[in-house]
Design a protein around this nucleic acid. Sequence first.
DNA 1: AGCACGCCGACT
DNA 2: GTCGGCGTGCTC
Length: 769
Amino acid sequence: MRLGRLGGAAALRLAYDGPLHIPNQPMPQEKPDSPLHDLFGKDAPRSGGGEVVQVLTPVGLDLSYSYRVPRGLDVGPGSIVQVPLGPRKVVGVVTAEPPELSASSNRLRPIEGAFDAPPLTPEMLTFVDWVARYTLTPRGMVLRMVLRAPEALAPEPPIRGLILAGPPPERLTDARRRLLDLLSENEGQAWTRAGLAAAAGVSSSVVDGLVAAGTLAEVDLPPGRPFRPPEPDFNPIELTPDQAAAVERLRAAGPDGVTLIDGVTGSGKTEVYLEAVADTLRAGRQALILVPEIALTRAFLERFSERFGALPAEWHSDVGPKMRARTWRAVALGEARVVVGARSALFLPFSDLGLIVVDEEHDGAYKQEEWASYHARDMAVVRGRLEKVPVILASATPSLESRVNATRGRYRHIVLPARATGRDLPSLYALDMRKAGPPRGRFLAPGLVAAIRETTERGEQAMLFLNRRGYAPLTLCRSCGHRFQCPQCSAWLVEHRFRGRLVCHHCGHSVPRPDACPACGTLDSLVACGPGVERVAEEIAALLPDKRTVVLSSDIGGGVQRLRAEFEAVAKGDCDIVVGTQMVAKGHTFPKLTLVGVVDADLGLAQGDPRAAERTFQLLAQVTGRAGRVIGKGLGLLQTYAPDNPVIEALVSGDAERFYRTELAERERAGLPPFGRLAAILVSGPSRELAEDHARHLARMAPADPAVEVLGPAEAALAVVRGRHRFRLLAHSGRDTDLSAYMRAWIAAADRPTRGVEAYVDVDPQNFL
DNA sequence: AGCACGCCGACT
DNA sequence: GTCGGCGTGCTC
């Protein structure tokens, strides 16, 4: 096992050079005793054997451990190695830190070997450390995100292929003849066992028989090269003058820095950043395109391959282990030139990254809130800085953070004010439900129903948007008032009529919908309260029975395949009315769609969530932006009980700037992001008492700091999830305070939780439940 | 994160 | 009397 040479470690110098982005995070000043400090500006010596190196392992540890390098093993910073850890063997990465234990220490154990994979670059190692520090995640856990394709470390095993290698067998059956015919028609071709059997229409035992007879022989085929390089000049598209000007500005921008492409829906942001991808390919470098949800980006992949003559590599949770391993290796070896991926693609070990694009940069899906919390958009900006490559953020409704960075000049700002097709943006109107609401028991105002009727009569499509899955969010007994609640969560069970069940959207618990009230036994006394998409579909189908209605929601049966098919069917025009949840707001173009009705425009405007207005504005602007993109005159109708709410007013006036102005003023007044910083601690435990006790302990232990205000503990809005009781604490500071460092000090000062209690730190929380 | 060690309930 | 629950601590 040997490794190639490593690039100069001097590149590490850039790591802590100045204020990095992170929504305005000042770079933490490294203290002289930091383990990383001594390395800057020096070339880390490669080990020639018999020495000691630090190895970071992908376990929940912040420390790296010292290991002895056996004689003859050539490893240096970034090398991927196997080391013993306690009773097991784990993969690890040699870091650039100086050894902590001396060669004579009896705790020292030897590295067992190095993998034949390219070493992680110094930039990648720095990135791991940076993310770990900022998010308060053990470095090992961040490394784990990098090494998340375990099979990728072994060279890909050759494919077993079959070729014609001997005379035909003595007994020639019908099946054998068909198989031999096929082989002679494709002379010299090697087949896989299953492929040959299927192509010849025989069972695999026929193939085995011929192998045994010596007619076929097994050979090793080199593993396939699935990553055909995209060609930058394969099929250049004609750009509009606006787009061409935007591309020129990107080119003029130079080799690094962040650019926000701020363009209305349909303005062709994608075409613009694909030109930047083409430039990256021309320079022989790799590009990463992050997208919020990859499962439904079929259309994007097709567009990409039309432009570049090859598909990009894909990286997301639906990629199987084999393809995952191949992709990881191909990225590390520089063979995969463009990767389109979900947020986890940010941790791929690119060998020569030249560009990062974050599409729909405002999207909440970029924030991971599981065991490690990070915002992929912010970390993309950090990685771009470390790698010294440009980062492009694209959105029709940019986050307030990015807008402020653009107006302050930290980001370049490219605005695409008009649709590339020259079509007008949809006209939006508020439907005041207090004055012109639906009759009792219904959810669609007569005005909206009439508009849907007119639209579909013209042969165009209408969409009803409601960000609520299922049939009804609450079921109660008319007789005794019993409400169906999840036994494990403080949430109502949502009726799903397709499935005939009541479902908890927080833990997945579900029960069949009973006929009688479980509390009082009364038959047929259960009533559904409020609408979900299924119920809206039922209502519109009853009102317009001759129209074809379809529901697009993540929980229609059949998984991603079925959903993709449904989206394509709608795009082809196979239905008149679409009723959809949040997922219809993203990306897809439905050419015949000209009317979008928002069933409950007030739904997202919950009090107490500082980001509610922004999220609602973005979501409603995105979803109404689907209307009239290809034909007709787009129309959006917003059903609301608060037509004078600033979000609704800004949408209806078509003046996005007005929304940004008022919302930014509000945030500035309250010192909220991007004018201040927030970090949360979520304490959860098996009982209310245990969770609350630890939350109070944390509150007492919060370090005194005049720059930081600590709030709480308060019971979380969702007080119980999966049987765990939750409390929240919030730290609030100005934007010049290193709140991440404050949180590290806080956690270090407090006792570690015990007895099943957990404390989870979320820097830059997006979600306030 | 794993995995081992360690101290209190229901069984061969 | 043991088997085993998972609570606590360690891994170079």
